[in-house]
Design a binder for these strands. Sequence first.
DNA 1: CAAACATCCTGGGTGC
DNA 2: TGCACCCAGGATGTTT
Length: 283
Amino acid sequence: MYMPELPEVETITRNLNINLVGQKLLSIDFLRKDIIAEKLNPVSEYLLLGESIIKVFRYGKYLLFQFTNNYLMIVHLRMTGKLLYLPLLSEEDKNLYLNHKHTHVIFNFSDGELLFNDVRRFGKIYFSKIDNSVTLEELLNSGPDALSENFSKDYLYQRSQKSPKKAIKTFLLDQKIVAGIGNIYADECLFLAAIKPNRAAASLTREESSTLHDKIIQVLEDSILSGGTTFSDYRTADNHKGNFQNKLFVYGRAGESCRICSNTLESIKIAGRTTVYCPKCQI
DNA sequence: CAAACATCCTGGGTGC
DNA sequence: TGCACCCAGGATGTTT
């Protein structure tokens, strides 16, 4: 029922930046080794042991941990992945998660343990070497981050005009076009921009594209302020839920009434993804 | 070349 | 109450 998108990853990033920077990685316990993916310029995890974290940052839905020797640990939580910093948990949660059947990797840092927990095991961890000839965009095979300056109004409009067939919803979900938007926020920003999700991307006027750009940034920033959206699985690094689920207009509300016009919200499939929209407000 | 489809995975929900 | 099914979804690889 839920996947961490840009606002949720940003919330976790901020939390870990406060709590993990400066700590030395002492050892890693792999309870399941298949979480580690041999991609993104892979290196052995042994090269990171004994090194300290310089910073934790985010690109799209990826979490990146930069170490003193300039190696990177990159984490993608996909749908149900969690990164939990043990010292922030309650005593009850500490015992629960240490022995949890879905806790797959334990990182032992100088001041506490970081747990990777993932029910569906779609999430992945990469250990990577920074190659200065390769940009982060290229390494992560992604377009501009949705909250970066590179994701400009002009870029969104020009790029949309090059997708004559693709539905605007599918367009927004494509990380190579813009990084960070998933199913929840794609539906939300299309609702706020009053655009029907199955319209061809290239059918957007310059004005619609401009409004959509405004709404993407607005909805992502608002959600970050609320600590993200929680349906069932998402937790911040201190195991708290976000609050943005109470502010959603369409996602998860099929059959309920539109908060603007009271019409019944409809659910359709676009490229295999559940899509909820208001047939009256969105044109 | 782009779009559609299958794949990975588990728990929660439904219907009989 | 139990069991068999179905569904959710991000990114990748394969097929059309």
